[in-house]
Design a protein around this nucleic acid. Structure first.
Lengths: 244, 244
DNA sequence: TGGGATTTGTTCGTATGTATT
DNA sequence: GAATACATACGAACAAATCCC
Protein backbone atom coordinates (compact mmCIF):
# COMPACT_ATOMS: atom_id res chain seq x y z
CA UNK A 1 0.00 0.00 0.00
CA UNK A 2 1.19 3.45 -0.88
CA UNK A 3 4.70 2.30 -1.50
CA UNK A 4 5.36 5.36 -3.65
CA UNK A 5 6.20 7.51 -0.68
CA UNK A 6 9.93 7.15 -0.17
CA UNK A 7 10.78 6.31 -3.76
CA UNK A 8 10.57 9.19 -6.15
CA UNK A 9 11.31 8.11 -9.68
CA UNK A 10 14.84 9.35 -10.00
CA UNK A 11 15.29 7.97 -13.50
CA UNK A 12 12.16 9.75 -14.64
CA UNK A 13 13.29 12.94 -12.96
CA UNK A 14 16.55 12.96 -14.86
CA UNK A 15 14.71 12.26 -18.09
CA UNK A 16 12.34 15.13 -17.49
CA UNK A 17 15.20 17.45 -16.67
CA UNK A 18 17.08 16.61 -19.82
CA UNK A 19 13.94 16.85 -21.91
CA UNK A 20 13.29 20.28 -20.49
CA UNK A 21 16.83 21.31 -21.23
CA UNK A 22 16.42 20.17 -24.80
CA UNK A 23 13.08 21.93 -25.07
CA UNK A 24 14.64 25.22 -24.02
CA UNK A 25 17.70 24.62 -26.14
CA UNK A 26 19.98 24.56 -23.15
CA UNK A 27 21.17 21.31 -24.67
CA UNK A 28 21.91 21.13 -28.36
CA UNK A 29 22.39 18.23 -30.74
CA UNK A 30 25.77 16.63 -30.25
CA UNK A 31 26.25 17.79 -26.68
CA UNK A 32 27.94 15.12 -24.61
CA UNK A 33 26.19 13.42 -21.70
CA UNK A 34 28.74 11.36 -19.74
CA UNK A 35 27.21 8.97 -17.26
CA UNK A 36 29.14 9.99 -14.19
CA UNK A 37 28.98 13.71 -14.85
CA UNK A 38 25.23 13.28 -15.10
CA UNK A 39 25.15 11.18 -11.97
CA UNK A 40 27.18 13.70 -10.05
CA UNK A 41 25.01 16.58 -11.17
CA UNK A 42 21.82 14.84 -10.11
CA UNK A 43 23.23 13.19 -7.04
CA UNK A 44 22.76 9.63 -8.23
CA UNK A 45 25.00 6.77 -9.20
CA UNK A 46 26.03 5.94 -12.73
CA UNK A 47 23.49 3.14 -12.82
CA UNK A 48 20.59 5.54 -12.56
CA UNK A 49 22.09 7.97 -15.03
CA UNK A 50 22.64 5.07 -17.38
CA UNK A 51 19.02 4.03 -17.15
CA UNK A 52 17.89 7.55 -17.87
CA UNK A 53 20.12 7.71 -20.94
CA UNK A 54 18.70 4.41 -22.11
CA UNK A 55 15.17 5.67 -21.84
CA UNK A 56 15.99 8.92 -23.59
CA UNK A 57 17.67 6.92 -26.34
CA UNK A 58 14.50 4.90 -26.80
CA UNK A 59 12.68 8.18 -27.34
CA UNK A 60 15.19 9.22 -29.98
CA UNK A 61 16.49 12.14 -27.95
CA UNK A 62 19.90 10.68 -27.19
CA UNK A 63 22.33 8.69 -29.27
CA UNK A 64 23.95 5.76 -27.52
CA UNK A 65 26.96 4.38 -29.33
CA UNK A 66 28.91 1.49 -27.97
CA UNK A 67 31.70 2.43 -25.60
CA UNK A 68 31.21 6.07 -26.50
CA UNK A 69 29.92 9.00 -24.54
CA UNK A 70 26.20 9.45 -25.03
CA UNK A 71 25.29 12.57 -26.97
CA UNK A 72 22.14 14.53 -27.60
CA UNK A 73 20.68 13.22 -30.83
CA UNK A 74 21.50 15.00 -34.07
CA UNK A 75 18.58 14.42 -36.40
CA UNK A 76 19.41 14.33 -40.07
CA UNK A 77 17.47 16.54 -42.40
CA UNK A 78 15.59 13.59 -43.83
CA UNK A 79 14.69 12.28 -40.42
CA UNK A 80 13.40 15.69 -39.45
CA UNK A 81 11.27 15.83 -42.57
CA UNK A 82 9.94 12.34 -41.89
CA UNK A 83 9.20 13.29 -38.32
CA UNK A 84 7.03 16.15 -39.50
CA UNK A 85 5.19 13.91 -41.97
CA UNK A 86 4.42 11.45 -39.20
CA UNK A 87 3.55 14.25 -36.83
CA UNK A 88 0.94 15.60 -39.22
CA UNK A 89 -0.81 12.24 -39.39
CA UNK A 90 -0.65 11.66 -35.66
CA UNK A 91 -1.85 15.11 -34.71
CA UNK A 92 -4.58 14.61 -37.26
CA UNK A 93 -5.77 11.75 -35.08
CA UNK A 94 -5.57 14.04 -32.08
CA UNK A 95 -7.75 16.59 -33.81
CA UNK A 96 -10.23 13.95 -34.88
CA UNK A 97 -10.49 12.65 -31.34
CA UNK A 98 -10.90 16.11 -29.85
CA UNK A 99 -12.99 18.13 -32.31
CA UNK A 100 -16.33 18.97 -30.79
CA UNK A 101 -15.57 17.03 -27.63
CA UNK A 102 -13.56 19.52 -25.61
CA UNK A 103 -15.00 20.42 -22.23
CA UNK A 104 -15.16 24.02 -21.12
CA UNK A 105 -12.39 23.33 -18.63
CA UNK A 106 -10.17 21.93 -21.35
CA UNK A 107 -10.82 24.90 -23.58
CA UNK A 108 -9.94 27.20 -20.72
CA UNK A 109 -6.71 25.30 -20.11
CA UNK A 110 -5.71 25.58 -23.75
CA UNK A 111 -6.62 29.26 -23.91
CA UNK A 112 -4.49 29.87 -20.85
CA UNK A 113 -1.55 28.16 -22.47
CA UNK A 114 -1.84 30.30 -25.57
CA UNK A 115 -2.12 33.39 -23.43
CA UNK A 116 1.11 32.37 -21.75
CA UNK A 117 2.63 31.97 -25.18
CA UNK A 118 1.58 35.48 -26.10
CA UNK A 119 3.03 36.81 -22.89
CA UNK A 120 6.33 35.10 -23.57
CA UNK A 121 6.36 36.41 -27.08
CA UNK A 122 8.74 39.28 -26.47
CA UNK A 123 10.92 37.16 -24.22
CA UNK A 124 13.39 34.44 -24.88
CA UNK A 125 13.03 32.26 -27.89
CA UNK A 126 13.65 29.22 -25.71
CA UNK A 127 10.60 29.94 -23.61
CA UNK A 128 8.43 30.36 -26.69
CA UNK A 129 9.58 27.09 -28.14
CA UNK A 130 8.92 25.32 -24.89
CA UNK A 131 5.39 26.66 -24.55
CA UNK A 132 4.52 25.93 -28.16
CA UNK A 133 5.68 22.35 -27.80
CA UNK A 134 3.82 21.87 -24.54
CA UNK A 135 0.65 23.08 -26.22
CA UNK A 136 0.80 20.25 -28.72
CA UNK A 137 1.65 17.70 -26.06
CA UNK A 138 -1.24 18.87 -23.92
CA UNK A 139 -3.57 18.48 -26.87
CA UNK A 140 -2.42 14.90 -27.30
CA UNK A 141 -2.87 14.21 -23.59
CA UNK A 142 -6.46 15.32 -23.79
CA UNK A 143 -7.27 12.42 -26.08
CA UNK A 144 -6.46 10.07 -23.18
CA UNK A 145 -4.94 7.68 -25.67
CA UNK A 146 -1.63 6.61 -24.10
CA UNK A 147 0.01 5.46 -27.31
CA UNK A 148 -0.89 8.62 -29.13
CA UNK A 149 0.43 10.70 -26.26
CA UNK A 150 3.72 8.85 -26.30
CA UNK A 151 4.32 9.11 -30.01
CA UNK A 152 3.24 12.72 -30.33
CA UNK A 153 5.37 13.71 -27.35
CA UNK A 154 8.42 11.92 -28.67
CA UNK A 155 8.10 13.53 -32.05
CA UNK A 156 7.39 16.95 -30.62
CA UNK A 157 10.55 16.83 -28.55
CA UNK A 158 12.56 15.63 -31.51
CA UNK A 159 11.13 18.48 -33.55
CA UNK A 160 12.82 20.81 -31.10
CA UNK A 161 16.12 19.14 -31.85
CA UNK A 162 15.49 19.56 -35.53
CA UNK A 163 14.76 23.20 -34.92
CA UNK A 164 18.04 23.55 -33.07
CA UNK A 165 19.84 21.98 -35.97
CA UNK A 166 18.12 23.44 -38.98
CA UNK A 167 15.77 26.17 -37.84
CA UNK A 168 16.43 29.87 -37.94
CA UNK A 169 15.93 32.02 -34.85
CA UNK A 170 12.65 33.79 -34.19
CA UNK A 171 10.65 31.38 -36.23
CA UNK A 172 7.70 31.08 -33.91
CA UNK A 173 5.93 34.36 -34.47
CA UNK A 174 2.75 33.34 -36.21
CA UNK A 175 2.52 30.03 -34.42
CA UNK A 176 0.75 31.57 -31.46
CA UNK A 177 -2.07 32.97 -33.55
CA UNK A 178 -2.42 29.62 -35.26
CA UNK A 179 -2.76 27.92 -31.91
CA UNK A 180 -5.64 30.18 -31.00
CA UNK A 181 -7.39 29.49 -34.25
CA UNK A 182 -6.94 25.80 -33.63
CA UNK A 183 -8.68 25.97 -30.27
CA UNK A 184 -11.52 27.86 -31.91
CA UNK A 185 -11.97 25.23 -34.60
CA UNK A 186 -11.70 22.41 -32.08
CA UNK A 187 -14.33 23.98 -29.88
CA UNK A 188 -16.67 24.70 -32.77
CA UNK A 189 -16.55 21.05 -33.65
CA UNK A 190 -15.71 21.12 -37.32
CA UNK A 191 -13.40 18.18 -37.77
CA UNK A 192 -12.59 19.12 -41.36
CA UNK A 193 -11.75 22.69 -40.49
CA UNK A 194 -9.71 21.77 -37.47
CA UNK A 195 -7.81 19.11 -39.36
CA UNK A 196 -7.04 21.46 -42.21
CA UNK A 197 -5.87 24.07 -39.75
CA UNK A 198 -3.64 21.65 -37.92
CA UNK A 199 -2.13 20.35 -41.15
CA UNK A 200 -1.45 23.87 -42.31
CA UNK A 201 0.00 24.87 -38.99
CA UNK A 202 2.37 21.93 -38.76
CA UNK A 203 3.38 22.24 -42.38
CA UNK A 204 4.31 25.87 -41.93
CA UNK A 205 6.18 25.07 -38.75
CA UNK A 206 8.06 22.45 -40.71
CA UNK A 207 8.79 24.96 -43.45
CA UNK A 208 10.24 27.41 -40.98
CA UNK A 209 12.05 24.74 -39.03
CA UNK A 210 13.79 22.99 -41.87
CA UNK A 211 15.73 25.86 -43.22
CA UNK A 212 19.31 26.72 -42.52
CA UNK A 213 21.66 25.02 -40.12
CA UNK A 214 22.63 27.13 -37.13
CA UNK A 215 26.19 27.35 -35.93
CA UNK A 216 27.24 25.13 -33.10
CA UNK A 217 27.74 26.90 -29.82
CA UNK A 218 30.31 25.73 -27.31
CA UNK A 219 29.79 26.16 -23.61
CA UNK A 220 29.96 24.18 -20.39
CA UNK A 221 27.62 21.32 -21.06
CA UNK A 222 27.12 20.26 -17.51
CA UNK A 223 26.70 23.71 -16.08
CA UNK A 224 23.55 24.35 -18.04
CA UNK A 225 21.93 21.33 -16.43
CA UNK A 226 22.33 22.61 -12.89
CA UNK A 227 19.04 24.53 -12.69
CA UNK A 228 17.15 21.61 -14.20
CA UNK A 229 18.72 19.28 -11.70
CA UNK A 230 17.68 21.56 -8.88
CA UNK A 231 14.14 21.74 -10.17
CA UNK A 232 13.69 18.01 -10.58
CA UNK A 233 15.62 16.67 -7.65
CA UNK A 234 14.79 18.90 -4.68
CA UNK A 235 15.47 16.41 -1.91
CA UNK A 236 19.03 15.59 -2.92
CA UNK A 237 21.46 16.90 -0.43
CA UNK A 238 24.83 15.94 -1.79
CA UNK A 239 27.96 17.79 -0.80
CA UNK A 240 28.13 21.51 -1.25
CA UNK A 241 27.26 21.96 -4.90
CA UNK A 242 24.53 24.27 -5.93
CA UNK A 243 23.68 27.58 -4.48
CA UNK A 244 24.02 28.24 -0.80
CA UNK B 1 38.06 -0.94 -36.40
CA UNK B 2 35.61 -3.74 -36.77
CA UNK B 3 35.40 -4.02 -33.05
CA UNK B 4 31.97 -5.53 -33.41
CA UNK B 5 33.43 -8.97 -33.90
CA UNK B 6 33.73 -10.21 -30.36
CA UNK B 7 30.78 -8.19 -29.15
CA UNK B 8 27.52 -9.27 -30.68
CA UNK B 9 24.64 -7.23 -29.40
CA UNK B 10 23.40 -9.58 -26.73
CA UNK B 11 20.72 -7.22 -25.55
CA UNK B 12 19.38 -6.93 -29.06
CA UNK B 13 19.51 -10.67 -29.47
CA UNK B 14 17.36 -11.23 -26.41
CA UNK B 15 14.93 -8.60 -27.60
CA UNK B 16 14.63 -10.24 -31.00
CA UNK B 17 14.11 -13.63 -29.41
CA UNK B 18 11.33 -12.41 -27.18
CA UNK B 19 9.74 -10.48 -30.02
CA UNK B 20 9.76 -13.62 -32.12
CA UNK B 21 8.23 -15.58 -29.29
CA UNK B 22 5.46 -13.00 -29.01
CA UNK B 23 4.97 -13.02 -32.74
CA UNK B 24 4.41 -16.75 -32.76
CA UNK B 25 2.31 -16.61 -29.62
CA UNK B 26 4.77 -18.71 -27.70
CA UNK B 27 4.53 -15.90 -25.19
CA UNK B 28 1.14 -14.52 -24.26
CA UNK B 29 0.07 -11.34 -22.49
CA UNK B 30 0.69 -11.58 -18.79
CA UNK B 31 3.41 -14.22 -19.01
CA UNK B 32 6.13 -13.56 -16.48
CA UNK B 33 9.67 -12.68 -17.50
CA UNK B 34 11.95 -12.87 -14.45
CA UNK B 35 15.36 -11.35 -14.97
CA UNK B 36 17.23 -14.28 -13.52
CA UNK B 37 15.44 -16.92 -15.54
CA UNK B 38 15.91 -14.89 -18.69
CA UNK B 39 19.60 -14.43 -18.01
CA UNK B 40 20.07 -18.10 -17.33
CA UNK B 41 18.22 -19.10 -20.48
CA UNK B 42 20.29 -16.81 -22.67
CA UNK B 43 23.57 -17.32 -20.86
CA UNK B 44 23.97 -13.73 -19.75
CA UNK B 45 23.93 -11.92 -16.48
CA UNK B 46 20.93 -10.20 -15.02
CA UNK B 47 22.25 -6.84 -16.12
CA UNK B 48 21.87 -7.76 -19.76
CA UNK B 49 18.48 -9.35 -19.31
CA UNK B 50 17.39 -6.25 -17.44
CA UNK B 51 18.50 -4.02 -20.28
CA UNK B 52 16.58 -6.12 -22.76
CA UNK B 53 13.44 -5.89 -20.66
CA UNK B 54 13.85 -2.14 -20.47
CA UNK B 55 14.07 -1.86 -24.22
CA UNK B 56 11.08 -4.11 -24.76
CA UNK B 57 9.16 -2.04 -22.25
CA UNK B 58 9.95 1.08 -24.25
CA UNK B 59 8.40 -0.66 -27.24
CA UNK B 60 5.28 -1.41 -25.28
CA UNK B 61 5.79 -5.16 -25.44
CA UNK B 62 6.60 -5.64 -21.77
CA UNK B 63 5.17 -4.12 -18.63
CA UNK B 64 7.69 -3.09 -16.01
CA UNK B 65 6.22 -2.34 -12.61
CA UNK B 66 8.32 -1.41 -9.64
CA UNK B 67 9.71 -4.32 -7.67
CA UNK B 68 7.53 -6.67 -9.65
CA UNK B 69 8.36 -9.36 -12.13
CA UNK B 70 8.23 -8.05 -15.67
CA UNK B 71 5.35 -9.43 -17.70
CA UNK B 72 4.41 -9.52 -21.35
CA UNK B 73 2.19 -6.53 -21.95
CA UNK B 74 -1.57 -6.97 -21.79
CA UNK B 75 -3.07 -4.34 -24.07
CA UNK B 76 -6.48 -3.09 -23.08
CA UNK B 77 -9.21 -3.15 -25.64
CA UNK B 78 -9.08 0.62 -26.03
CA UNK B 79 -5.34 0.62 -26.48
CA UNK B 80 -5.64 -2.05 -29.12
CA UNK B 81 -8.23 -0.01 -30.97
CA UNK B 82 -6.05 3.09 -30.72
CA UNK B 83 -3.08 1.11 -31.98
CA UNK B 84 -5.01 0.15 -35.08
CA UNK B 85 -6.10 3.74 -35.68
CA UNK B 86 -2.51 4.89 -35.51
CA UNK B 87 -1.37 1.97 -37.58
CA UNK B 88 -3.71 2.91 -40.39
CA UNK B 89 -2.29 6.43 -40.56
CA UNK B 90 1.29 5.27 -40.37
CA UNK B 91 0.95 2.54 -42.95
CA UNK B 92 -0.81 5.11 -45.07
CA UNK B 93 2.47 7.00 -45.08
CA UNK B 94 4.25 3.80 -46.01
CA UNK B 95 1.95 3.30 -48.97
CA UNK B 96 2.37 6.90 -50.04
CA UNK B 97 6.14 6.58 -49.94
CA UNK B 98 6.15 3.31 -51.82
CA UNK B 99 3.40 3.52 -54.43
CA UNK B 100 4.89 3.52 -57.89
CA UNK B 101 8.41 3.48 -56.54
CA UNK B 102 8.99 -0.19 -55.87
CA UNK B 103 11.89 -1.78 -57.72
CA UNK B 104 11.48 -5.12 -59.42
CA UNK B 105 13.64 -6.68 -56.75
CA UNK B 106 11.45 -5.30 -54.01
CA UNK B 107 8.32 -6.53 -55.72
CA UNK B 108 9.87 -9.96 -56.03
CA UNK B 109 10.75 -9.94 -52.33
CA UNK B 110 7.21 -9.06 -51.38
CA UNK B 111 5.70 -11.63 -53.71
CA UNK B 112 7.96 -14.26 -52.20
CA UNK B 113 6.78 -13.35 -48.74
CA UNK B 114 3.14 -13.68 -49.73
CA UNK B 115 3.88 -17.00 -51.38
CA UNK B 116 5.39 -18.14 -48.11
CA UNK B 117 2.23 -16.98 -46.39
CA UNK B 118 0.14 -19.05 -48.76
CA UNK B 119 2.33 -22.05 -48.18
CA UNK B 120 1.96 -21.68 -44.43
CA UNK B 121 -1.76 -21.30 -44.74
CA UNK B 122 -2.68 -24.84 -43.84
CA UNK B 123 -0.08 -24.93 -41.10
CA UNK B 124 0.09 -23.43 -37.69
CA UNK B 125 -1.71 -20.24 -36.94
CA UNK B 126 1.39 -18.93 -35.23
CA UNK B 127 3.41 -19.16 -38.41
CA UNK B 128 0.75 -17.36 -40.40
CA UNK B 129 0.59 -14.54 -37.91
CA UNK B 130 4.34 -14.20 -37.94
CA UNK B 131 4.57 -14.03 -41.72
CA UNK B 132 1.70 -11.57 -42.01
CA UNK B 133 3.32 -9.27 -39.50
CA UNK B 134 6.69 -9.49 -41.15
CA UNK B 135 5.13 -8.51 -44.44
CA UNK B 136 3.97 -5.22 -43.00
CA UNK B 137 7.29 -4.59 -41.30
CA UNK B 138 9.14 -5.29 -44.52
CA UNK B 139 6.93 -2.81 -46.31
CA UNK B 140 7.82 -0.17 -43.75
CA UNK B 141 11.52 -0.97 -44.06
CA UNK B 142 11.38 -0.36 -47.78
CA UNK B 143 10.57 3.29 -47.17
CA UNK B 144 14.02 3.67 -45.60
CA UNK B 145 12.52 6.05 -43.10
CA UNK B 146 13.93 4.95 -39.73
CA UNK B 147 11.28 6.58 -37.58
CA UNK B 148 8.47 5.12 -39.63
CA UNK B 149 10.07 1.70 -39.46
CA UNK B 150 10.33 1.91 -35.71
CA UNK B 151 6.78 3.01 -35.08
CA UNK B 152 5.19 0.63 -37.56
CA UNK B 153 7.20 -2.27 -36.20
CA UNK B 154 6.32 -1.49 -32.62
CA UNK B 155 2.65 -1.25 -33.40
CA UNK B 156 2.65 -4.35 -35.56
CA UNK B 157 4.16 -6.37 -32.75
CA UNK B 158 1.70 -4.97 -30.27
CA UNK B 159 -1.10 -5.88 -32.65
CA UNK B 160 -0.04 -9.49 -32.23
CA UNK B 161 -0.48 -9.11 -28.50
CA UNK B 162 -3.91 -7.67 -29.07
CA UNK B 163 -4.71 -10.62 -31.29
CA UNK B 164 -3.59 -12.99 -28.53
CA UNK B 165 -5.84 -11.20 -26.10
CA UNK B 166 -8.94 -10.46 -28.11
CA UNK B 167 -8.69 -12.23 -31.46
CA UNK B 168 -10.34 -15.46 -32.37
CA UNK B 169 -8.33 -18.31 -33.89
CA UNK B 170 -8.03 -18.73 -37.62
CA UNK B 171 -8.64 -15.10 -38.31
CA UNK B 172 -6.01 -14.65 -40.99
CA UNK B 173 -7.61 -16.40 -43.92
CA UNK B 174 -8.34 -13.58 -46.31
CA UNK B 175 -5.36 -11.52 -45.22
CA UNK B 176 -3.03 -13.30 -47.61
CA UNK B 177 -5.12 -12.43 -50.65
CA UNK B 178 -5.29 -8.85 -49.48
CA UNK B 179 -1.52 -8.73 -49.27
CA UNK B 180 -1.20 -9.80 -52.85
CA UNK B 181 -3.66 -7.19 -53.97
CA UNK B 182 -1.67 -4.61 -52.08
CA UNK B 183 1.53 -5.46 -53.89
CA UNK B 184 -0.33 -5.19 -57.18
CA UNK B 185 -1.65 -1.73 -56.34
CA UNK B 186 1.72 -0.59 -55.05
CA UNK B 187 3.45 -1.76 -58.21
CA UNK B 188 0.86 -0.20 -60.48
CA UNK B 189 1.49 3.10 -58.82
CA UNK B 190 -1.96 4.26 -57.88
CA UNK B 191 -1.52 5.93 -54.55
CA UNK B 192 -5.25 6.34 -54.03
CA UNK B 193 -6.01 2.73 -54.80
CA UNK B 194 -3.17 1.40 -52.73
CA UNK B 195 -4.07 3.61 -49.80
CA UNK B 196 -7.70 2.58 -49.93
CA UNK B 197 -6.68 -1.06 -50.10
CA UNK B 198 -4.35 -0.74 -47.14
CA UNK B 199 -6.95 1.07 -45.06
CA UNK B 200 -9.51 -1.59 -45.87
CA UNK B 201 -7.09 -4.38 -45.15
CA UNK B 202 -6.04 -3.02 -41.78
CA UNK B 203 -9.56 -2.16 -40.80
CA UNK B 204 -10.74 -5.67 -41.51
CA UNK B 205 -7.79 -7.10 -39.65
CA UNK B 206 -8.78 -4.92 -36.74
CA UNK B 207 -12.37 -6.11 -36.99
CA UNK B 208 -11.28 -9.71 -36.85
CA UNK B 209 -8.71 -9.08 -34.17
CA UNK B 210 -10.81 -7.16 -31.71
CA UNK B 211 -13.42 -9.75 -31.08
CA UNK B 212 -13.59 -12.19 -28.24
CA UNK B 213 -11.04 -12.76 -25.52
CA UNK B 214 -9.28 -16.13 -25.64
CA UNK B 215 -8.71 -18.18 -22.53
CA UNK B 216 -5.39 -17.95 -20.81
CA UNK B 217 -3.13 -20.92 -21.27
CA UNK B 218 -0.71 -22.04 -18.59
CA UNK B 219 2.55 -23.72 -19.44
CA UNK B 220 6.24 -23.50 -18.62
CA UNK B 221 7.08 -19.94 -19.50
CA UNK B 222 10.79 -20.32 -19.75
CA UNK B 223 10.76 -23.56 -21.62
CA UNK B 224 9.13 -22.02 -24.64
CA UNK B 225 12.00 -19.57 -24.95
CA UNK B 226 14.67 -22.21 -25.30
CA UNK B 227 14.52 -22.57 -29.11
CA UNK B 228 14.54 -18.80 -29.54
CA UNK B 229 17.53 -18.53 -27.25
CA UNK B 230 19.37 -21.13 -29.27
CA UNK B 231 18.55 -19.35 -32.51
CA UNK B 232 19.70 -15.94 -31.36
CA UNK B 233 22.75 -16.73 -29.29
CA UNK B 234 24.79 -19.31 -31.22
CA UNK B 235 28.27 -17.89 -30.76
CA UNK B 236 28.35 -17.80 -26.97
CA UNK B 237 31.82 -19.05 -26.47
CA UNK B 238 31.90 -18.75 -22.75
CA UNK B 239 34.49 -20.82 -20.98
CA UNK B 240 32.84 -23.99 -19.89
CA UNK B 241 29.94 -22.40 -18.05
CA UNK B 242 27.34 -24.25 -20.02
CA UNK B 243 25.34 -25.08 -17.00
CA UNK B 244 26.57 -24.09 -13.62
C1' DT C 1 -1.62 -12.83 9.97
C1' DG C 2 3.23 -14.01 9.64
C1' DG C 3 7.54 -15.64 8.02
C1' DG C 4 10.63 -17.37 4.63
C1' DA C 5 12.02 -17.80 -0.11
C1' DT C 6 12.27 -15.30 -4.19
C1' DT C 7 12.94 -11.22 -7.07
C1' DT C 8 14.07 -6.77 -8.00
C1' DG C 9 16.81 -2.15 -6.95
C1' DT C 10 21.13 -0.32 -6.43
C1' DT C 11 25.94 0.22 -5.73
C1' DC C 12 30.60 -0.44 -6.74
C1' DG C 13 34.79 -2.93 -8.46
C1' DT C 14 37.09 -4.63 -12.43
C1' DA C 15 37.79 -5.24 -17.38
C1' DT C 16 37.69 -3.44 -21.95
C1' DG C 17 37.55 -0.19 -25.28
C1' DT C 18 38.19 4.81 -26.88
C1' DA C 19 40.27 9.38 -27.19
C1' DT C 20 44.22 12.21 -26.39
C1' DT C 21 48.88 13.71 -25.58
C1' DG D 1 52.85 5.65 -33.19
C1' DA D 2 52.74 4.41 -28.24
C1' DA D 3 51.32 5.32 -23.67
C1' DT D 4 48.23 7.48 -20.61
C1' DA D 5 43.74 9.07 -19.05
C1' DC D 6 39.08 8.38 -19.14
C1' DA D 7 34.38 6.44 -20.08
C1' DT D 8 31.63 2.71 -20.65
C1' DA D 9 30.41 -2.64 -20.20
C1' DC D 10 29.61 -6.05 -17.30
C1' DG D 11 29.09 -8.73 -13.24
C1' DA D 12 28.88 -9.93 -8.15
C1' DA D 13 27.03 -8.70 -3.85
C1' DC D 14 24.03 -6.46 -0.60
C1' DA D 15 19.53 -4.36 0.73
C1' DA D 16 14.70 -3.85 0.29
C1' DA D 17 10.35 -5.17 -1.38
C1' DT D 18 7.23 -8.69 -2.83
C1' DC D 19 5.05 -13.15 -3.20
C1' DC D 20 3.49 -17.45 -1.47
C1' DC D 21 2.56 -20.84 1.80
Amino acid sequence: MASESGKPDRVGAICRAIRSAILERALSPGDKLPEDALGERFGVSRTIARHALGQLASEGLVELRRNRIAVVATPSFDEARDDFDIRIELEGLVVKALAGRLTQAQIATLEAMVTAEEAAHGGSEAQSLRLATEFHVKLAEMTQKPVLVRYVSEIAYRSCLALSTFGRPHSSECAVAEHRGLIQALASGGVETATALMDEHLESVAQRALLVPTERRDRDLMEVLAPYAAAEMPPTRRGGTGKA
